[in-house]
Simulated scan of single mutants.
Amino acid sequence: MASGNMKDIKRRIKSVQSTMQITKAMELVASSKLRHAKERVSQSRPYFNTMYSTITRLASVTRDADSVFTQKREVKNSLYIVIAGDRGLAGGFNSSIFKLGAAQMGGKNAHVLTIGKKAQEHYSKRDWPVLGNYPGIAETMKISDTHPIIHQTIDLFKKGEIDEVFLCYTEFVSPLQQDAKCIQLLPVNFKKQGGQTADKNGAGVLTEYDPSPEAVFDAIIPEYLYGVLYGAVVESFCSEQSARRMAMEAAADNAGEMIENLNLSYNRARQAAITQEITEIVAGSGQVG
Rank of each mutant, 00 (worst) to 15 (best):
M1K: 04
S3C: 10
G4H: 06
D8P: 00
I22H: 14
A25Y: 12
S32W: 04
V41I: 07
S44Q: 05
R45C: 09
Y47E: 12
T50F: 06
Y52P: 03
T54G: 13
T62W: 01
R63Y: 07
S67F: 03
T70M: 14
Q71C: 04
K72R: 12
I81M: 12
I81E: 07
D86N: 11
G88T: 09
N94R: 08
S95I: 15
F98C: 01
F98Y: 11
K99F: 15
A102F: 00
A102T: 09
A103K: 15
K108D: 07
H111Q: 07
I115C: 05
K118P: 08
Q120K: 13
R126I: 02
D127H: 06
W128D: 08
L131F: 14
L131S: 08
G136R: 04
I137L: 13
I137R: 11
A138N: 03
S144W: 04
H147R: 08
P148M: 07
H151R: 14
I154V: 11
G160L: 05
C168Q: 00
Y169H: 03
F172S: 09
A180Q: 00
N189D: 14
N189E: 06
F190A: 08
K191S: 07
K192V: 12
Q193P: 03
G195H: 05
Q196Y: 15
D199W: 09
G204Q: 13
P211T: 10
P213Y: 04
D218T: 02
A219Q: 12
I221W: 03
P222D: 00
E223H: 05
L229N: 13
A232E: 01
V233N: 06
V234A: 08
E235L: 01
E240K: 03
R245G: 03
R245D: 06
M246W: 10
A247F: 15
M248P: 02
E249K: 10
A250N: 07
A251T: 02
D253G: 00
A255F: 00
E257K: 13
E260I: 08
L262W: 01
A269W: 02
A272W: 06
A273E: 12
I274D: 05
I274W: 03
T275Y: 02
Q276K: 15
Q276A: 15
I278W: 06
E280I: 11
G284S: 13
Q287H: 11
V288R: 03
V288L: 00
G289D: 09
